[in-house]
Amino acid sequence: MSGQLLVFVICGAFAVLGALGLLFFHKAVHAALSLALVMINLAAIYAALDAALLAMAQVIVYTGAILMLFLFVIMLVGIDRRESHRELIPGQGVVAILAGIGTLGLLVFAILGSFPAQAVGLEAANGGNVESLAALIFGSYVFAFEFISALMIIAPIGAMVLAQQARLTAKKTQRERAAARIEAYAQKGVHPGTLPNSGVTALQDSIAVPGLLPAGRISTSSVSQAMVDRDAVVNVHAVSLLTAQRFAELSGEVPPAIIKPEPVDLVDTKDERELLK
């Protein structure tokens, strides 16, 4: 087995794994990372196929630039979104998979036998991959290259226009927002004031610590959903236990193991269970 084939088998397997990850990860970030896996492995395969420039471009442009752009956008819009895999359109998944199998069949049917028995290889054509490609790009493909560079100018301008769109509605005044808040309170009972602060304990005071209500229950609205999505919420009851233990140690009165609090279930809503998961 040649090194080339070895690279192909290993990197091909990882690429397929990454593609499957793209299909099955719930979170966009994971999908983006698995796409990065695919791309890097493809870059390795490019390299094995005597395409040094493309391999580098794949790593630098695709994985480095484009996927970073994806991650930026995910950070902007999608970090706290989980996508359920429960299909809402009846038959969509089944038909899509069947159509995919059909496509695969067609492609395999088309590919098999359409390649020359022995690959020509690029030793002759390459003679220094970058120089040869440059000769082509700035030679016979120069017009295509110029058009694409024009596209590269235009596309960011378009992106800026899209991102900088004018306001669709007038900015709400403070009075209007206050009225809307009271209206929401009247209609749905939404609390009109500011949301509760995150919790401040002796040991921790990050925004990942939920605030406690007077009865000792967790205030679900005191932590950001982003924290929940990241599983970063601190278990305050563990913290308070720890604090009590520390107090006991400092005062030297009662060994901490003895004052283990009653196993009172202070969590009584589903949301709170979710928080403390």
Binding site: I89, Q92, V95, A96, A99, G102, T103, L106, F109
Partner: peptide
């Protein structure tokens, strides 16, 4: 005519497969 992009995309995809099959 559900208005859902994915249904339309699926229809396009299935149509493409169909045309491919017929061509072959």
């Amino acid at each position: 005519q559900s208005g859902r992009v994915r249904s339309y995309a699926l229809a396009t995809f299935v149509g493409a497969v169909f045309i491919g099959v017929i061509t072959i």
